[in-house]
Amino acid sequence: MRTWLAQHFAAIRGATRRLVASPLGTLLSLMVIGIALALPCAGWVVLDNMSAIAGSTSGIQQISVFMTLDAGRKDVSEIESRLRQASAGEWRFVSRDEALKRLQSSEGMSEIVASLPRNPLPDAFVVEPDDTHPKALERLAKTFAEWPKVAHVQLDSAWVKRFDAFLRIGKLAVVMLAALFATALVSVTFNTIRLQILAHAAEIEVSKLIGATNAFIRRPFQYYGALQGALGGLFAALLVVGSGWLLAEPVGELITLYGGSYAVRGLSTTGVGVLAAAGAALGWVGAQLSVSIHLRRIG
């Protein structure tokens, strides 16, 4: 067991020395790996933020429940009770007088409102559901429409469906992009390890002659590829976090203009670990393929 661990530690030390021995080449490789991993990761973070922004911005995914004009206080109280029982999310009551005042304060509407013989606006409830999936919103709107003294339920379901379809297409595009860059990273690591093998070809042949196993020969190159990939993943995380930090303030200001309050979601600690692990795994695969092909050639 000690011998096995010693061999692995020796392979890790050897891989680290090779990375340090050519700092410029290592830096360039890390930049290539980091950018390739950062692009799909940044795309996923952007889509996640867009989904959260849509849910946090007032008026984006809400249901308006309009009462009939003859609805009294008792009817309003019943609707309030039903909303509490339904646990539909956050909601607020907008009285007809409040709605008229808001309309009157709108530009160019004060004279029109003043000329009206009576208030034509109904009492209403504005509901912001917890579940903003299009089908869930439609089910909730249909339920509201069946309640007594409800004249009309307004839901911009077409917009919600379009936005949901956009997010699904975006996530699929990010997955395809990630698969494409993963293939490219394996190819980059494959070529890097191939150059390392050519530089140590004589050493590998001597090791084979004195009885070294294929696993012993593969090990340093596998760790080299994994370490390079892991460092590239950390570099990618740094790029994504830095970009998020730079965009946080202007995005927050933009959301505020639309009546919302939102803090940009960055890359979590788990996300950083996933990026590093993904880079290490892709580097290991590239090294494994490269060394296996070379060993097969020399028999």
Rank of each mutant, 00 (worst) to 15 (best):
I63R: 00
S81R: 14
D75W: 10
P220N: 13
A277F: 06
T213V: 00
S87P: 14
G286L: 09
A114E: 11
L247K: 01
A151H: 07
E205G: 01
W44V: 07
V175F: 08
V240R: 00
F216I: 01
G43H: 02
A179H: 09
V174P: 03
L247M: 15
E253Y: 03
E146V: 02
R168D: 10
I35V: 07
A124S: 15
S268A: 13
S77H: 13
A52S: 07
L27C: 13
A215L: 13
I255P: 15
R2V: 06
T213N: 00
A179I: 15
I169W: 12
I35D: 03
M50R: 01
I204G: 05
S261G: 13
P129Q: 13
G252H: 05
I298R: 00
L239P: 00
C41Y: 06
L30N: 00
Q228T: 13
R13G: 13
T143H: 02
A280V: 05
G229E: 02
A179V: 15
T3C: 02
A38Y: 02
R296T: 08
G34L: 12
G233S: 13
G260A: 10
L121F: 11
A199M: 06
L247W: 06
A212P: 01
A99D: 08
G55M: 01
L28M: 14
A21H: 06
S157M: 08
A212N: 01
K171D: 12
V65Q: 03
T132W: 02
E249Y: 04
I293G: 06
H8N: 12
H152W: 07
A199K: 01
R219Q: 14
E107H: 06
S29W: 00
G108P: 12
P129T: 05
V240L: 03
E203H: 00
L234I: 02
A277V: 14
L275K: 01
A10H: 08
S56V: 04
M109I: 06
I60N: 07
A236L: 09
S105H: 09
R82A: 10
L5Q: 07
A201F: 04
A281Q: 03
P134N: 00
D130C: 03
D97L: 11
L231N: 01
W245L: 10
T132D: 11
P122Y: 14
T269G: 09
Q85V: 10
V126K: 15
A36F: 04
E205V: 03
Y224I: 05
T256E: 11
F166H: 05
T3D: 07
A88K: 15
I53W: 00
R18K: 10
L47K: 06
A173Y: 09
Q62R: 15
R265D: 07
W91H: 11
V113H: 13
F125T: 02
A6N: 14
S58R: 09
I298C: 05
G266I: 12
P120I: 04
A248W: 06
A199W: 02
M67R: 09
L83P: 09
V241Y: 11
K142T: 13
A179P: 12
A99P: 12
Q62W: 06
A136W: 11
V45C: 04
R168Q: 11
A11D: 13
L180I: 11
L137D: 07
G170W: 04
K149I: 09
G271D: 03
S261V: 07
L257Q: 11
K149Y: 10
F181D: 01
V160A: 15
E111T: 14
V76W: 09
V241C: 03
G225T: 05
L27W: 05
